[in-house]
Nucleic acid binder design. Sequence first.
DNA 1: GACTATTGTAGACGCTGGAAACATTAGCAC
DNA 2: GTGCTAATGTTTCCAGCGTCTACAATAGTC
Lengths: 210, 210
Amino acid sequence: MKSAKEKYHHGDLRAALLEAALGVLNELGPRGLSIREVARRAGVSHTAPYRHFADKDELILAVVEQGFELMQQTMVAEQAAAGPDPLAQFAASGFAYVNFALSHPAYYRVMFSGDLLSSKGHIAFQHTSSRAIREMVTDIKLGQEQGVLRAGDPVLQALTIWSTIHGFVSIVNDNRLSHLVGEDFSLDDIRVQVLVMIFDGLGVPERAHK
Amino acid sequence: MKSAKEKYHHGDLRAALLEAALGVLNELGPRGLSIREVARRAGVSHTAPYRHFADKDELILAVVEQGFELMQQTMVAEQAAAGPDPLAQFAASGFAYVNFALSHPAYYRVMFSGDLLSSKGHIAFQHTSSRAIREMVTDIKLGQEQGVLRAGDPVLQALTIWSTIHGFVSIVNDNRLSHLVGEDFSLDDIRVQVLVMIFDGLGVPERAHK
DNA sequence: GACTATTGTAGACGCTGGAAACATTAGCAC
DNA sequence: GTGCTAATGTTTCCAGCGTCTACAATAGTC
């Protein structure tokens, strides 16, 4: 009996291609991502991917969706593990976002850059993160009703928090802090302190962090 | 006499190529940026650009540097025009940053994405924004000494503010707010209110905005 | 076991980034 | 001016890319 790799039909080529694509992004960077290289790593001909993805855009968008799926899962899990306090839950979910972004930079970059896509693919791309912010707005409203989050327009608050977190992980992932790190700060210091600054601003003043 | 465009020697091909590159980014997006297309628009052969840029990375990096130059100029100008109050100056400079990013999305994207570069080009890329944050830290220190900015580690404060601003303009430029805009908010509303949230948090409490 | 849809391959096209060899011109010494 | 040289632009060529079309192998179904 032949090994699975030598069979004419791969078995689950789609998943193998997505995994290979992520590997390419990690090792060769976005510029090195080509359908042909991905096919090579999966051990199939350079046109085989077209049986699973209409074009390069669709392959990339599938990686993006898988990334959001994965991030969503870890955020939900961390939120559930944070105990009963709504503010703690909210913060845990935010920490999970940051941790995902910093420990899976290739995923995060492709999820939010869009530069890899053609102008056509960009339209589908814009909707990939809309679910995330809507859930955040819901969480904030809940926290405000329970009196643990500062009052104010929840949409604007969510946008501000998301902006800060997204900006921070983008800056770190693009290595733009290399000239800061090492002298007075380690990356871990910076990460913790910035997160504290963000979430300190969230609670109602009477409940300020100890 | 021939028109300038028909001469064998272009005159200032380097600048023409940079301008063409920006045009391509605006019209065709990052994926459409090719040396050959840029050369075509400048009316030269597809290898002429190699007399001015060693490779595609260098062309892109030149656009990036030109973008930072331009942004820097408008920020300095706005800061100077803001009057004597250091907090107002600081805010004016921040507003200029946001306005530049939102009115020159192609510039801003290429300045901060890096996805267009090969892994080699990324190293040079990481240093392009270091000057900006250092100047911001200096400004914050000054504001603190004069008692108009909240106390705290200026590096962490600068990083947090920069994160929020960078994240915000990135989110807006990537059209990720399309599902928010239109119902309750216009983009202008959002922009103004988010900026107010950011800079409200900066002043010392006694000087809070009226 | 034959039929058909699914999934893979082979080869071609025009595009790309880039190297090499060549052509034209500007600037300068005289 | 004439001639030399460096700078700048062109031509030609190559391999790699995304994607199309035609073909081959297999899996599932009757």
